[in-house]
Design a protein around this nucleic acid. Structure first.
Lengths: 206, 206
DNA sequence: GTCTATATCGAGATAGAC
DNA sequence: GTCTATCTCGATATAGAC
C-alpha cells in the first residue's frame, strides 16, 4: 500500500501501473494544462479507475510534480553536452539540432514545460533559479571564452541560448500554428532543421 | 439591459465597466489560462461583484472570446506593415523590433495568445487557419521576391517568420525563466534588442 | 489492491430583492 | 443595474465493501 510512497520495494504490477498513469497524465497535462486536466481524463486514458489513481498518487498535484521532476533532467541533458574542447560552431549547431530533435520526439514534455513556465513556474521555480541558471551560466562562460579566442562572432551568450530555446521549442509548443500556416502537406521539423542550422552557422561565424 | 448585448447604444457607465472587466480578465487569463481562471478572481480584480460580471457578459467564455478577438488584430498589425517597396533588411529588422516592443509593452496579450495556441487554439483556430495563414503567405511571397532579386540571403521565408515570432514572444511568455537566468539586475528587453537586430542583419545579408 | 458509492467543495450561473 | 442568496454541477478526495 503506497499511499504516501512508503519505503517498500514496488512490485512489477505497481511499477507498470505507476508508469501507465504517468504516461496518461503526460498526455493530458500537456494538452490541457494542470487546472484544465481532471483525474477522470487521466484515469480514462490510463485505463484505470479514478480511486485507483489516488491509491498510487496521493493527489493530482503529486502526479504533476513527479512528471516535472523527471522532465527537467531530460531537458538539461543536451546543454550538459556542450564541450568546451570541441569546435565552437559544431558544438552549438549540434546543440540546436539536439534541441530540435527533442521538440520533435518529446512534444508533450515540451508543452508541459511551456505550460509551467507560462504560468510563472509555480512548481519548478527553485530548479529554474538553481540548476538551470547555474548550468546556463557555466555554458555561457564557455561561449564567452570562444568569442574572446576569436572563434565565434561577438554575440551575447545568454541571449544566444534564449534564441535557441525559443526557436526549437516553438515547433512543439506552437505546432498547431506552425502546421496551420504551412498547411498540412509537409513535416515542419524536416524543413526547420536546415533552416536553423544555416541561421546559426551564419550568425556565429567570426 | 445588455444580457446578450442587444442592439442598444451603451451608456458611459456601461462602457467603463465593460472595459474594467476586460482589463481584469486579461490580467487573470494571461496568468492562469482559461481553465485556471475563475470569475471570482476577475470580479475581485475589477472591483465588481460576480453577478455583475455575468450581467455584462453572459458567460466566462464570452469574456475570453472578446479578448481574443481584439487580440488578433493587434497581433497582426506589425506584419501588415512590412512593405515590399522598402529596403528588405530594414523592413524585416523593423518588424523584429516592433514585435519585441509589443512583447515588452503587451506581455499579457502575448501570454493570452501563447496559452491559447499551446492548448491547440480551441477558440481561435479558424482565424489562425484563415487570416494569419493568408497574411503570412502574402508576406512570405514578398520575402521570396526579395531573395530572388538577390537582396536577401536564401532562407525559408516561413521559418524566418516562425523564428521571429518565437524569439520575440519568448521574452514575454517565458519571462520568469529569462529573468531567473539573467538575474534580476538588468532589463532583458534592453539587451535583447541589439542581439536580435544583429542576429537578423547577419543572417539576412545576401 | 481495486472497486462502488459518497462526502465535500469550489465555481459557473440564476433568482429575486432593492 | 446591482446586490445577496442560492441552485447546480463537476471534480477532488475518501469510506468502506469485496
Amino acid at each position: 500500500m503506497p499511499r504516501s510512497q512508503t519505503t517498500k520495494k514496488p512490485t512489477r504490477i505497481q511499477r507498470e501501473k505507476t508508469k501507465a498513469i504517468l504516461e496518461a497524465a503526460l498526455d493530458v497535462f500537456s494538452d490541457f494544462g494542470f487546472r484544465g486536466s481532471t483525474i477522470d481524463m487521466i484515469a480514462a486514458r490510463a485505463g484505470v479507475s479514478k480511486p485507483n489513481i489516488l491509491y498510487y498518487f496521493d493527489t493530482k498535484e503529486a502526479i504533476h510534480k513527479t512528471l516535472l521532476a523527471e522532465l527537467l533532467q531530460t531537458w538539461l541533458a543536451p546543454l550538459h553536452q556542450i564541450d568546451a574542447a570541441g569546435d565552437p560552431i559544431e558544438e552549438i549547431c549540434g546543440y540546436v539540432s539536439q534541441k530540435l530533435k527533442m521538440a520533435r520526439d518529446f512534444p508533450r514534455e515540451s508543452k508541459l514545460f511551456a505550460n509551467e513556465i507560462l504560468q510563472g513556474a509555480p512548481h519548478i521555480l527553485p530548479e529554474i533559479q538553481g540548476e538551470l541558471k547555474e548550468l546556463t551560466a557555466v555554458k555561457a562562460r564557455v561561449v564567452s571564452d570562444w568569442i574572446k579566442a576569436g572563434k565565434l562572432a561577438d554575440i551575447d551568450p545568454h541571449h544566444l541560448f534564449f534564441s535557441i530555446w525559443a526557436t526549437t521549442q516553438h515547433y512543439a509548443d506552437f505546432d498547431i500554428q506552425v502546421r496551420s500556416v504551412l498547411g498540412d502537406e509537409s513535416d515542419p521539423f524536416a524543413s526547420a532543421g536546415p533552416f536553423l542550422d544555416k541561421m546559426y552557422r551564419t550568425m556565429l561565424r567570426p
